[in-house]
Computed example of a mutant assay.
Amino acid sequence: MLGRVRALQFRSRGATLRYDATGHGDPIVLVHGLSGSSRWWRHNVPALSGTHRVYVLDLAGYGQARRQRSLGVRAAADLIAAWLDHLDLRNVTLIGHSLGGHISMHVAARRPERVRVLVLACASGLLRDRLYRVALHLPRAVLTGRVTFVPRILADAARSGPLNLWRSTRDLLKDSVQDLLPGLTARTLVIWGGRDALVPPSLGRALAAAIPGARYEEIPRAGHVVMVDAPGEFNALVLDFLREGT
């Protein structure tokens, strides 16, 4: 039987994906957002791994993979898709936060035969703004979330470095998922923080409306890092959605 494994890696075309895995059952894959890391899911993994095999990724340029150059949205999606093929993961629940949700939509479009469920948490796929304006929203986005999580946000951002953060932000603002949304076939749950100051809830509602059959859920007191601000509500929404699909 599979147990807990840590600090594994997968390389493809010169890029490295780092990941940990724990639990048993159909796979759940967690993809962090901009300036994030696998540590951002620590309040979610225990609940999700009770019934699933949970893979927690560190994108190139972040977390355990921080010594690399960050990839663009579509290159990161290509790497994750190749990793899914490498492990031959099927019946995947792909959960992405912010930039990770943006990437996850591309992965679901590339591997519909592998991704059965898609969970988008405050995903950036429809965000359109100038880079400096997004930067201006960052202090408010941090302060509307869980204050005790601020040191982790700052530490992971510092480890990633300003160049990786700039490259990733510039690329996500240039990339739109609008055209691929109607073709997504995975059962989709869209979860948003009602106090998200970085990616407004109006974009979450628009995202859910554009994906066939998608469900939209909003957690009123949560901010942008919704799975940290309200982990109990977030975990319950995900697990209930998964049970409904069995």
Rank of each mutant, 00 (worst) to 15 (best):
A109N: 10
P46F: 04
I80F: 04
W83K: 02
P27I: 08
S70Y: 05
P112S: 00
L34K: 02
A65F: 13
V92S: 01
G96L: 12
F10A: 12
H24M: 12
L87G: 06
L79R: 06
D20N: 04
L84I: 07
A60I: 13
I103E: 04
R53D: 02
V29E: 03
L30T: 12
I103Q: 01
V31W: 10
R18G: 01
I80D: 03
G50L: 14
S35W: 04
P112W: 00
V115M: 06
A65C: 06
A108P: 08
A77M: 08
I95D: 05
L30H: 02
D85C: 11
V56W: 10
D78W: 01
A76V: 06
S37M: 08
G100N: 09
P112R: 00
L71W: 10
D78P: 03
E113P: 07
V73C: 10
D58G: 08
A82V: 12
L34V: 14
G33F: 03
R18E: 05
T22R: 14
S37H: 06
H32V: 02
H97Q: 14
L59C: 01
H32W: 07
H24D: 15
D58P: 13
S104I: 13
Y55C: 07
A21L: 07
V73W: 12
A82C: 05
Q64R: 15
D20R: 10
H86D: 14
R67F: 01
A65Y: 05
A21R: 13
G50F: 10
A47R: 13
G61Y: 06
R90C: 06
V45E: 09
V107N: 08
V115H: 05
G63H: 04
W40H: 14
R110F: 03
R66I: 05
T16H: 03
I103S: 00
S98C: 14
D78G: 10
L79V: 11
Y19V: 01
F10N: 08
I95W: 06
V45L: 13
S98Q: 03
G63M: 03
S38W: 13
